[in-house]
Design a protein around this nucleic acid. Structure first.
Length: 107
DNA sequence: ACCATGACGGTGT
DNA sequence: GACACCGCCATGG
């Protein structure tokens, strides 16, 4: 790929590798790609409609579902995570440490 | 090249 | 645990 390859593509690629029932943080992905966390968040915010990226598994370092607002009211991020066995309470993953997935270590 | 914006992170109170 | 600050880097106008 040309040098003009967008960081976004890398972010999406890593996000797609997140295993079922696990979640990671923007910072973890950022560190893995060598960029800052804000850029990762921005990449997710730029996700087009109909993307195939499990963005609901990407939260901030506190385990808070900051991007829940970006999801359709019909597909609550919270519910999606609970379906995967992740305990969520008021937009916050209570057992984040348990389901945390670090690309820098697991990848 | 400059300025504003942002699904964030770490530390201190 | 909640809140406030400041630092970081990429993209767009």
């Amino acid at each position: 790929m040309p040098a003009t390859r967008k960081i976004f593509e890398d972010v999406y690629e890593v996000a797609r590798l997140i295993p079922f029932g696990r979640a990671t943080s923007y910072g973890a992905i950022a560190r893995y790609l060598g960029i800052n966390a804000r850029t990762v968040g921005w990449a997710m915010n730029s996700l087009p409609t109909g993307h195939d990226v499990p963005a609901h598994r990407v939260v901030n370092t506190k385990g808070i579902l900051t991007g829940a607002a970006a999801f359709n009211p019909e597909s609550p991020m919270e519910k999606l995570l609970k379906e995967e066995g992740i305990r969520v309470e008021k937009n916050r993953i209570t057992d984040f440490q348990k389901v945390f997935w670090d690309p820098s270590e697991e990848l």
